[in-house]
């Protein structure tokens, strides 16, 4: 594990944003309304949010403190925070409200921001941790949108994460460069699958999670204006969605000694060389 903490760290309270998404190994689909079909029972915790939880739990184990798992989504989404509890989060919060349905990234970010402010008012939040992307929409927009709303310094795409005192430091790998970013807590980070190897919940964790309550909040509890989230607040609209037709004229050859030559001929015939 590359995430860890240096010495001299005060207790940290970390909120981890976790999302319930269709299992990427399942047949995923968009409905006639252009929205992700989320009721197939094939939902699961977004894999990259396991990395986010792992990073937060490792920091807390080294420094002391607590982790809150937070999700925004329909009834099923509670599974995401329950999984967080099983892995070792202390608290779980589920924001559920019919008006949230159809939110785009800005709508979701508004609700998460309101929920984090709500938690911060109860007890100071030092760090917000997210996954680098939801494996459903794969936009990676949420982390910096949330940072902008919460007015927090953002250190996205952490492949390595350390907290030393009140300083958070991240190493990240981009397409053409690698960077080291630093900021003072409170801050927001998103983590990649390079950051760590997420733990599996053990029996003890699973049993303990059963006893922990999940706090449920609505938009009214958070004083979020329903017209600014959900379909009403969305700034993009899906017009068409169709499963891609399968590729045609596919060829599969078993090598009997000349498959390399046949492959070359295929590429030449199709003007690919």
């Amino acid at each position: 594990m590359r995430s860890g903490a240096g010495g001299n760290v005060p207790r940290v309270r970390i909120v981890v944003c976790v999302k319930h998404v269709p299992d990427i190994q399942s047949e995923r689909a968009l409905g006639p309304d252009g929205r992700v079909v989320r009721d197939g029972g094939d939902g699961t915790l977004n894999e990259l949010d396991e990395n986010a939880l792992e990073a937060a739990l490792a920091l807390v184990e080294a420094a002391g403190g607590s982790v809150v798992a937070l999700t925004v989504g329909p009834d099923d989404a509670v599974d995401a925070v329950r999984r967080g509890l099983q892995m070792g989060a202390e608290d779980a919060v589920h924001v559920v409200d019919d008006a949230v349905a159809g939110s785009d990234v800005v709508g979701t970010a508004r609700v998460l921001a309101a929920a984090i402010r709500h938690l911060d008012a109860q007890e100071h939040v030092d760090l917000v941790v997210l996954g680098m992307a939801g494996l459903d929409g794969l936009t990676s927009l949420l982390p910096t949108a949330l940072a902008e709303l919460l007015d927090l310094p953002a250190l996205p795409l952490a492949a390595e994460l350390t907290v030393d005192g009140s300083t958070v430091r991240v190493r990240r790998n981009l397409d053409h460069a690698s960077e080291v970013l630093e900021a003072t807590l409170p801050a927001l980070v998103s983590v990649t699958d390079q950051a760590n190897e997420p733990r599996y919940p053990n029996f003890k964790g699973i049993m303990a999670a059963r006893k922990k309550p999940v706090a449920t909040l609505t938009l009214a509890d958070l004083e979020v204006d329903a017209s600014r989230v959900g379909l009403l607040g969305a700034r993009t609209e899906v017009l068409e969605a169709a499963a891609r037709p399968p590729r045609e004229n596919r060829v599969l050859v078993q090598d009997t000694g000349d498959a390399g030559v046949r492959l070359a001929a295929y590429l030449v015939d199709n003007q690919l060389v």
Binding site: N249, V253, D255, L263
Partner: peptide
């Protein structure tokens, strides 16, 4: 990967790929 491949070769990459590279070089 063969579910989405337009042209798939079931074979050992260590023989198929060098053979393909040599043939492309020859054809070009």
């Amino acid at each position: 990967i063969f579910e989405i491949a337009d042209f798939g070769v079931v074979g050992d990459l260590f023989t198929v790929v060098p053979q393909a590279a040599a043939e492309i070089r020859r054809l070009k």
